[in-house]
């Protein structure tokens, strides 16, 4: 089984304000290798470029430079080869309320990828496969859910449909762009566990994009921390969480509500961090100190 490799991936956006043009580097020299069965989490605040990386890998954005390699070969940007690439790499979007077409039924959403990628032949086989997909994501009874339209379902149910859609072509790699951030807290864990189960069953490589360090640790083998388009820290997830090297990772950790800090002021938490001898420079200064 091959891997999905991202090599020197860079994306510039051109910003026009009046006649002035300026460039914004959304992702700078991103490298990582996603193996089947493994999960890499990309963590960062809003605007750190993590979603841009996801969209480039899903071929929704064209990288300015760099390469995405599937099984060691450079991936195509058009034609039949692109369809083959999509066959392997699928994406789950952040907002389940926006990622399903309000006009179509659940069945339509699952049928199309099945037909497009030639997974099934004939209406009957497609229907059976659709029901099976729905059952895999715990949407039972499948025939009831297949006939539903998106607005008749809850956020968690919609996201399950979106996951089923991503699995439909038989993908080996799944890009999950903040798949649970729009869901109720009570549903998040069950959706994440569903993803984890599907990953085990299909030996999927998952790129898990999030701003939540806790779920990143729970769910992934490796964590990549991004800041302003750069990777500032990476490593095995426990190591990154328990022994952060970069100031920004510490800030992210400190930003998560921690019961032991209850009642303390933000400045006090910062002072605690400082007193442990970590970091004195401004964490938001673009440093580009990629560790490892």
């Amino acid at each position: 089984m091959g891997s999905l490799e991202v090599r020197n991936l860079t994306k510039d956006f051109t910003i026009r304000s009046g006649l002035k043009r300026s460039k914004l580097r959304a992702a700078n020299d991103i490298n990582f290798v996603l193996e089947p069965g493994k999960t890499i989490a990309i963590v960062g605040e809003s605007g750190s470029g993590k979603s841009t990386v996801a969209r480039m890998i899903a071929k929704l954005e064209q990288p300015t430079s760099g390469d995405i390699l599937l099984d060691g070969t450079s991936s195509a940007t058009r034609g039949r080869a692109l369809v083959d690439y999509r066959h392997q790499v699928q994406m789950v979007f952040q907002d389940p309320f926006a990622s399903l077409n309000p006009f179509h039924t659940v069945e339509h959403h699952l049928e199309r990828p099945l037909k497009l990628h030639g997974v099934t032949r004939g209406a009957r086989e497609t229907k059976e496969q659709t029901y099976e997909l729905l059952e895999r994501v715990n949407l039972t009874p499948a025939n009831v859910f297949a006939a539903k339209k998106p607005h008749e379902m809850s956020g968690g149910q919609r996201q399950r449909v979106a996951i089923a859609r991503a699995l439909a072509p038989g993908a080996r790699f799944l890009i999950a762009d903040e798949p649970v951030s729009m869901l109720d807290v009570s549903i998040r864990l069950s959706v994440l566990n569903l993803l984890a189960r599907l990953q085990r069953e299909d030996n999927l490589g998952v790129l898990y994009i999030t701003h939540d360090l806790a779920t990143a640790r729970h769910f992934s083998d490796e964590i990549i921390v991004m800041l302003r388009g750069n990777i500032v820290e990476r490593g095995p997830s426990d190591e990154v969480i328990l022994n952060p090297r970069h100031e920004y990772t510490e800030l992210l950790l400190a930003a998560a509500p921690n019961p032991s800090n209850h009642g303390k002021l933000r400045s006090e938490v910062r002072a605690d961090l400082a007193s442990t001898g970590r970091g004195s420079q401004d964490p938001l200064a673009p440093s580009g100190t990629s560790v490892r």
């Binding site: 969209r55 899903a58 071929k59 929704l60 692109l82 369809v83 999509r86 066959h87 699928q90 994406m91 979007f93 952040q94 907002d95 926006a98 990622s99 399903l100 077409n101 309000p102 199309r112 990828p113 497009l116 990628h117 979106a162 859609r165 439909a168 072509p169």
Partner: peptide
């Protein structure tokens, strides 16, 4: 720019 159009593109439509 809706996500469901992006999803359709990812699906290969």
């Amino acid at each position: 720019n809706r996500d469901y159009v992006a999803a359709a593109r990812v699906a290969g439509e």
